[in-house]
């Protein structure tokens, strides 16, 4: 069979150990090693493609864009959450271990069930609420207004921060780094009027208050978002919100309900 052009077989090789889990035959995940050819431009995702095409077509993993924008190819590389397409074999000359993202249930091999994350994301309504833009007038924002939230707008929902978060590992009900960072992003947006709808979830035990500022979420983020900063700014917002509510006269309760399954 012809080798893919990106990885000629006369290149140097290293040992890539991949976590396998085939629910129909494995009781628990097992490790399988492959000798993989690589050069300076070979990413972990390229190597997975090579294994699937040349060695073992049963290997299952998610991927799409190959350029760190779709957020599909998150895996643990030597125990650290990384995007497969943005991690290069040249940085692991002694070999590497690739596993499914931590803190999520494994479906097959490197594919995890991200539903818990998507559930949390939905609960925090990460989209503009209120003030529909009219057809003739665009919503204007000053550079300062854009700057307030722009840093938190680069999230690609890859879920690496959830794999990095020990609190999410202990308590999957914790809304978690990416969802809270996105809620914060929309709360900071001058065009948005949805803060009152998001705040009750953020104020709850499983909102910003489950975070203990470990900060690993921000370390692993492949897009330079700083979810730890968003959550801890969110703690100040939640505290202020509490103080205002405790000193406000009682009003009709219109707090959103928490969906339970």
């Amino acid at each position: 069979m012809k080798q893919p052009d990106s990885i000629p077989s006369d290149k140097q090789h290293l040992s890539m150990t991949v976590q396998r889990y085939r629910p129909e035959q494995d009781d628990a995940p097992v490790w399988q090693s492959y000798q993989v050819p690589y050069d300076d431009s070979t990413s972990v995702l390229d190597a997975l493609h090579w294994i699937k095409e040349q060695q073992d077509s049963s290997l299952a993993y998610r991927w799409s864009c190959r350029m760190a924008i779709c957020g599909s190819c998150g895996v643990m590389v030597d125990g650290t959450p990384k995007l497969g397409c943005k991690t290069f074999l040249r940085d692991y000359p002694k070999g590497l271990k690739v596993a499914a993202l931590a803190n999520f249930p494994i479906e097959k091999d490197l594919i995890v069930d991200m539903n818990q994350f998507l559930h949390h994301l939905t609960a925090l309504k990460p989209y503009l609420i209120g003030q529909p833009s009219s057809a003739s007038e665009p919503n204007r924002q000053s550079p300062e207004q854009v700057k307030r939230y722009q840093q938190f707008a680069n999230c690609i929902n890859c879920g690496l921060c959830y794999s990095a978060c020990p609190q999410f590992g202990l308590n999957p009900e914790f809304l978690g780094p990416a969802a809270i960072a996105l809620a914060h992003r929309y709360n900071l947006d001058s065009r948005d009027q949805g803060k009152a709808e998001r705040q009750p979830a953020l104020n709850s035990k499983n909102g910003v208050w489950s975070c203990t500022f470990v900060g690993f979420c921000s370390t692993v983020c492949p897009k330079g978002v700083d979810p730890a900063a968003a959550i801890n700014q969110g703690k100040i917002v939640s505290t202020m919100d509490g103080v205002i509510q405790w000193f406000s006269p009682k009003q009709l309760d219109t707090t959103p309900q928490e969906p339970t399954s």
């Binding site: 009750p200 979830a201 035990k205 939640s238 509490g242 339970t260």
Partner: peptide, 18 residues
């Protein structure tokens, strides 16, 4: 429709502020 329960405000702001 799934059953719903109210989000309960955490008392953590008090302890976190201290």
């Amino acid at each position: 429709m799934a059953a719903t329960k109210r989000y309960q405000r955490s008392d953590e702001p008090i302890w976190w502020s201290l």
